[in-house]
Design a protein around this nucleic acid. Structure first.
Lengths: 216, 216
DNA sequence: TCGCGAGCTATTCGATCGTATAATCGACGT
DNA sequence: ACGTCGATTATACGATCGAATAGCTCGCGA
């Protein structure tokens, strides 16, 4: 327990550092936290393993910074969907948000893979994820999608807990299981055609076609 | 000499081999294939690590046998739901199957955790899972639920690929992410009340309004 | 010109991984 | 009583893990 010399170099970022963050997220998503060795991450980034302690201190800190970067993308997405489109009614906003999230998850499946991998077990990373992003997303879905009436084909008195996990699961599972889907059906979920068809199906299921009135 | 002397037959009612298969599935589900060490599995089963090579040869073979056992449970569940409804119309059969699967996943979340963990990356275990179970489940969902007309609130011309992953994701995500949900909402997804409410919501979304009083 | 620090590599350490091997225990047939 | 054999333990081996440390390279201000 002697002073383990903190290695904080707060100087501005180098291209190497950015590359490491990108491949780290991919490796954590594909192999899991334990399965992604620091040597494998460094090799994918084309650098020596010693760069990880050098830039990030520990593997855990690297994980947090790589995941935290993805969080910022999600926040920007939600903010865009919330503020974008001035005169949209709740139903149209729900449709737009579903389509945006589908396209994002298709483009960056690593995000949902890390979230689901850590959310299934106790531990500091699960707690960190919940406190830093999941709760925020949950509240947006509950308040701005569900309670605002944008998800017309769900019971109005449903506990948001169920709505949230049904919606998230329905949106993300196809892209989370992309390699499985590739072997099962021969089709690549990241193909634009598949992505848009998936968004269409989700909108039809959760939002429905706009009728004159919207009773449940 | 110098033995850790006292002989404690911790015999927890199950034969050693069976006990090992049970805890192995739990460990693989919680920690992932790499994260679940053979020493940890043996310790949870209360046996020496050497029992794993002795009974199963390799860690990979232990994984296959533990997962294969869970597959048999799923097959029995599907067969029960399929044969159980001779006088049931397609809609009622779809409702019953959804409710059965929800209860199963709530009772054994390890199953879906292993499936999703392996289905997200290439590798022999993903291929083994797809060839030994996923394809079979996919065809049951496609032919006996969707094409039979039991999922009335989905477009009739939807590619089964989308239907499958939307349905599976919507059903399982809550239980897959149980620790996350516990921290997020303070509620335990395995509580019977939550389980049944989840099934109700899914039936309402995919089939239509749930007829109360159904012969379980 | 030279020093010097940031970026990066090479090497090493103790811990832990999956697996192999031999010894020990305990019940049972003879 | 003794030998046998399956169940179980103890121990060891090579590989790999995350992390620490020392040294190298090189652009650049003084």
């Amino acid at each position: 327990m002697a002073q383990p010399a903190p290695r904080e170099r707060l100087q501005s970022d180098a291209p190497t550092r950015e590359r490491m963050l990108g491949v780290a997220l991919e490796a954590f998503a594909e192999l899991g936290y334990d399965g992604a060795s620091t040597r494998a991450i460094a090799a994918r980034a084309g650098v020596n393993q010693g760069m990880i302690p050098y830039y990030f201190g520990t593997k855990e800190a690297l994980w947090r910074e790589a995941v935290g970067r993805a969080f910022e993308e999600v926040r920007a997405l939600m903010e865009e969907a919330r503020a974008g489109g001035s005169p949209l009614d709740d139903r149209a906003r729900a449709e737009q948000m579903i389509r945006q999230v589908v396209r994002f998850v298709a483009r960056r499946p690593e995000f949902v893979r890390v979230m689901n991998d850590e959310g299934k077990r106790e531990g500091p990373r699960m707690e960190w994820i919940v406190d830093h992003l999941v709760r925020e997303v949950f509240e947006v879905v509950r308040d701005q999608l569900y309670r605002a009436g944008g998800l017309a084909r769900l019971p109005a008195d449903l506990d948001p807990l169920h709505l949230y996990y049904i919606l998230i699961g329905a949106i993300t599972m196809l892209f989370h299981q992309a390699p499985e889907c590739q072997r099962l059906t021969g089709r690549d979920p990241s193909d634009e055609e598949v992505v848009e068809a998936h968004a269409d199906a989700l909108v039809a299921l959760f939002v429905g076609e706009p009728p004159r009135s919207s009773p449940t």
